[in-house]
Amino acid sequence: MSPSTPRAIVERLLRLTAEGPSEGMADVFAEDAVFEMPFLPPGAPQPEPGREAFRAHLKAAVGVQEFDSVDDVHIHETADPEVVVAEYRLHGRVVATGKRFASRIVMVARIRAGVIVWSRSYSNPLDAVIAFDAVHDLLAGLTTA
C-alpha cells in the first residue's frame, strides 16, 4: 500500500492522535481543509477552516487534555477512491482533573494529493460533557436555548 493512499493518511492521523493533541496532527491536512463537527455541544463553535487554524486549536488543547491511545479502529474504503470512513475510540484524560475518558468517533474524510481536504467527525457530545464535568453547564445551555 502506498504511504499516500487515503487509508494510509487516516491511519497516520490516528497514530498522531493517539499521542496528542499535538500540532503535528495538522500536517496531514490541506492548507484550506474544511472541518465539520455536527454534534458539538450547544454553544461550542464549529472549527475554523484551514490547517493553521486547526494547528492553533491543537496548540490550545495541549495542557487541557491528553490522548494516550486509539483503539477499536475500523477503516472503511468507499466507492469514491478519495473517501474513507474511520471508526475508532479515543482514550485520554482531562489534565486539570485527571479524569479519564473514552470517546467513540466516526470520521468521514476526503483525501487528495496525500492530505485530508475535508473531514466530518461525529462523536457523542456527552462524552466530553461528562469528562469535563460540564453536565450542569450543558443543562443550563439547553434550558436557555
Rank of each mutant, 00 (worst) to 15 (best):
V94G: 01
T144M: 01
M37Y: 11
V70Q: 01
Y88P: 12
V64H: 09
G141W: 08
P6K: 01
F132D: 08
L13T: 12
R120F: 05
T144F: 01
A56N: 10
Q65Y: 12
F67C: 14
V94A: 07
F39K: 02
I116F: 05
V106C: 08
M37I: 08
V34M: 04
S119P: 00
V94E: 10
I105L: 09
Q65S: 13
E82G: 00
I111G: 00
D71N: 09
A60W: 03
T5D: 00
A131D: 05
S69I: 00
V34G: 01
A8G: 08
T97P: 06
I105T: 11
A113K: 05
G63S: 13
V135Y: 06
R112I: 05
T143R: 14
M25F: 11
H136M: 14
D127H: 13
P38E: 07
G24W: 10
P41C: 07
M37Q: 06
G141M: 07
D127K: 11
V106A: 05
P3T: 08
V10M: 07
V34P: 06
A113I: 03
I75A: 02
E23F: 06
K59W: 00
I105G: 01
A109G: 04
E23W: 01
D68A: 08
T143I: 14
N124C: 12
E48C: 05
R100V: 07
V62N: 00
L142E: 05
V108L: 06
S69P: 13
S123T: 15
P125N: 09
Q46M: 03
Y88K: 14
I75G: 03
V64D: 07
L139E: 13
V94C: 04
A96E: 11
L126S: 06
S103T: 15
N124D: 15
P41Q: 03
A18Q: 13
P81G: 05
A8S: 15
Q46H: 02
A128N: 14
E31W: 04
T143Y: 11
F35D: 03
A102C: 10
